[in-house]
Amino acid sequence: MSGPEYTELPERAAKILENFLPPDEKIGERMQYFAHVQPRAGDQEGDTEIIDGVTFTHHFVDAPGDYETVRWHYVECGNKDAEKIVFLHGIPDSWYEWCHQMAAFAREYHCIGVDLKGYGQSDKKGGNYQHEAVSEQLWAMLQQIGVKQFNVITHDRGTVQADFIAANHPESVLRYGRGEQHLYNFHPALAPQGDLFMDAPYNGMLDDPKYTVLWGYTWLTVRPIPDAEMERVIQEFSYEGIRKAVPRYFSSSTFRQEWLARRNRLLGAWKCPVMILQGYDSKTQPREFYEGVEQHIPNARSVEVRYIPGGHFWTKESPKESIEAIRELLKM
């Protein structure tokens, strides 16, 4: 094997692997429980909705990219003249993953939640789905809508793209709240979903969006999430074209390639304050992997680690605690 060796699994994480993936019976029960959930109608430019007493406005913009342009869907709240916070979601989510956090900061900041390309209501046409290429398209879109400098708060797959933005455009990123993604340490046994999603056109993993959402959340959640929020997550992953678009990311790269890119060139290029945000009981990113990470991000203005109560989906499992951590970051 060329390149760095994989990190040895901590004893605690190795034991979790003994019963790693969720049992089919549990997924079946959850499927029956949420059988009533139907897809929601798409939004139009300027549509609004109120969450936690805050008005969220939906927008669509065409920015340079595949087929000349990529159509992006994003949602904003707060004071447009205030400092910016950009929120990037993971799989199987959308901008809605961050709705409570966005609402919490709307009084002081201009909050922008983006649907990544291939997700939610953003473009799902073909093209380049390598994360670095998509990150450049995302950065260009933000520049186009006037978001020149911003804080970025991320989770899971959104973190992969923000890693590139923070390295390639350090002048744009004020602070980086980096959530729930492998950093310097990695072991492939912790990332079986890479092959599952890459082979989704053949194994049917993404054919039923309800199944995909419930599979992921049942597998990686340790704290309960309100039913109404789970219903919306299912709806956000049910827009036409997602099941065809998302596998393109996993066919374009692997977790190993992402890991090597970080170690070889990205981590040393980050300049802003960085806060690593990880679920305390995350199955796929054990907390032991983040001890002493400061030495691997040598040029950041500061580096801190915060463990959020919950599993992988602490954005929904522990919104209050995640808001408190983000507030700490914004003071750095």
Rank of each mutant, 00 (worst) to 15 (best):
M1S: 12
G3N: 11
F20E: 04
P23V: 07
Y33G: 07
V37W: 01
Q44A: 13
G46T: 04
G46E: 00
I51Y: 00
G53T: 00
T57S: 06
V70E: 11
C77Y: 01
N79W: 05
A82M: 06
D93V: 07
W98G: 01
Q101R: 01
A103R: 02
A106M: 07
Y109I: 08
G113H: 04
G113F: 06
K125R: 15
G127T: 06
E132M: 14
W139H: 13
A140C: 14
Q143Y: 08
Q144H: 11
H155K: 10
G158C: 13
T159D: 08
A162E: 03
G177P: 01
G179Y: 00
Q181F: 13
H182K: 14
Y184D: 11
Y184T: 14
L190K: 05
G194P: 09
L196S: 08
F197N: 06
L206Y: 03
L206F: 08
D208S: 11
T212W: 03
T212Y: 06
G216K: 06
Y217C: 05
P226G: 07
E229P: 01
E236V: 10
F237H: 05
S238K: 05
G241C: 07
R262G: 12
R265I: 13
K271T: 06
M275I: 09
Y290R: 09
P298S: 10
P298Y: 09
A300P: 02
V303S: 00
G311T: 09
W314C: 10
K316D: 01
E317F: 07
S322Y: 03
I323S: 04
A325G: 10
